[in-house]
Design a protein around this nucleic acid. Sequence first.
DNA 1: GCACTAATACTCGGATAAATGCTGTCCGAGTTATCATGG
DNA 2: CCATGATAACTCGGACAGCATTTATCCGAGTATTAGTGC
Lengths: 137, 137
Amino acid sequence: MRISARCEYACRAMLELALRFQSGDPVNSTLIAERRGIPEKYLVHILLQLKRSGLVQSVRGAQGGYLLAQAPNTVTLYDIVTAIDGPIEDQLPLGDDASAELRPAWNRVAQGLKSSMQKILLNEIAENADKPDMYYI
Amino acid sequence: MRISARCEYACRAMLELALRFQSGDPVNSTLIAERRGIPEKYLVHILLQLKRSGLVQSVRGAQGGYLLAQAPNTVTLYDIVTAIDGPIEDQLPLGDDASAELRPAWNRVAQGLKSSMQKILLNEIAENADKPDMYYI
DNA sequence: GCACTAATACTCGGATAAATGCTGTCCGAGTTATCATGG
DNA sequence: CCATGATAACTCGGACAGCATTTATCCGAGTATTAGTGC
């Protein structure tokens, strides 16, 4: 039931890309790593994974880097998390060796998780990032 | 974002205890392990953990075993999962080294997860366990 | 039939091993912009 | 001023090492019931 560091790194990177989305030019991995405190060599693999999932575009060569493939208001936390971890059904005990009696319960959990993550848009996070002192209880 | 086998085992064990709750007499670990397909020696540690969290009572000695400490309709999936994995806040990136910008997002996820798990009662699972052919989409 | 003892069936909990997954780095290869150099 | 080549700044992706967690077992100790034994 835990969120991996890899997943948080992905979200931080996506946040950084969202903040620079309007400019239109690519952001290189080194910059993202520095700005968001992510191990640089590790981040590259995460960005490539995000790219394969279609959340990120890349530009090769000098002055290259990464950009969001979609506008931040069309990307949800669910998209990012599943891009990194794979489908949530695979993380819950819903496979062949799982208990049939518990399956409906885990399905409901999966649905709840999915819907709460789908409600969180990347642009919301980015906008809150501008107002530095916000507190959620 | 995944549910450990340990956690599923705990739920299976709780389900078995719920089904035998009315009889009032303790169920030994061997029986639970056989009935629910759980490695026996592993299960013991899980049961003790559930006991420490106050979900389960135990009776030592011959004819001893384990019983639910509360009625099945007062136990939620959330209770079981947090008994095994600890508080969900500890599983999400909400610690000191976490990104402040993402914190509100993870908090909302935690709340969503918590509330969806709190809606699932152990007795509901147990009742569905009687009707063998139920499908959830 | 009763007291006492031994055996048995359990829980309790720490230590530990094996397997798996997570985090992170390294290296080589490919691609594009930029810069330098010569004509 | 232009073409050409070299260099530098990037992405791409597999392989791999180190570490932490998960999963599972082992063993010894404690506790209550049951069975057996002698009187």
